[in-house]
Nucleic acid binder design. Structure first.
Lengths: 77, 77
DNA sequence: CTGCATTTGTGCGTATGTATG
DNA sequence: ACATACATACGCACAAATGCA
């Protein structure tokens, strides 16, 4: 599991975005599948909800994922 | 009725937790009895559902209450 | 049995405040 | 002054369980 380096030059939200993007592109999380919830990602990577939300928003803006309130965040086709 | 101070230093969810905990410990709501529903607590204290849910979760983690989906939240014995 | 309302639990999006470098 | 990071707070949506007409 890739980990977050809070002392790296790269912002935490950017590191998390890159990690999740990599997992999607490598097929670790296939299209149509749900990403871990924000709450889970907070615990797994040890970051705040705002950081997770910024990472997910970036992936949404890139078209890699699609979030549905009440459901979760899906990997796009 | 204790009220919530949105400008106090203490977070709203913490204030609500403390108010409810006090009512339970003083026997205002006896063991086995139902707490007001989340919807009711929202209206009574003028806070959002997320805030009420966080307070109830805290009380659950403390073992003071026990929630049953579809029923409500009971004061523990 | 079939709906419908209520309630809890989980989830997301947005906004705001505080602290730090 | 600015970006980052965290915590709080609100609002809303959806699923499952419960109870009742």
């Amino acid at each position: 599991m890739e980990e977050i380096d809070h002392h790296a030059g790269e912002p935490v939200w950017s590191q998390l975005t890159r990690i999740l993007r990599g997992q999607i592109e490598r097929g670790v999380i296939p299209p149509g599948k749900l990403l871990p919830s924000i709450s889970t990602l907070m615990q797994v990577y040890g970051v705040s909800d705002g950081t997770v939300k910024r990472a997910l928003k970036t992936l949404r803006d890139e078209g890699l994922v699609s979030s549905v309130p009440g459901r979760g965040t899906y990997v796009s086709q």
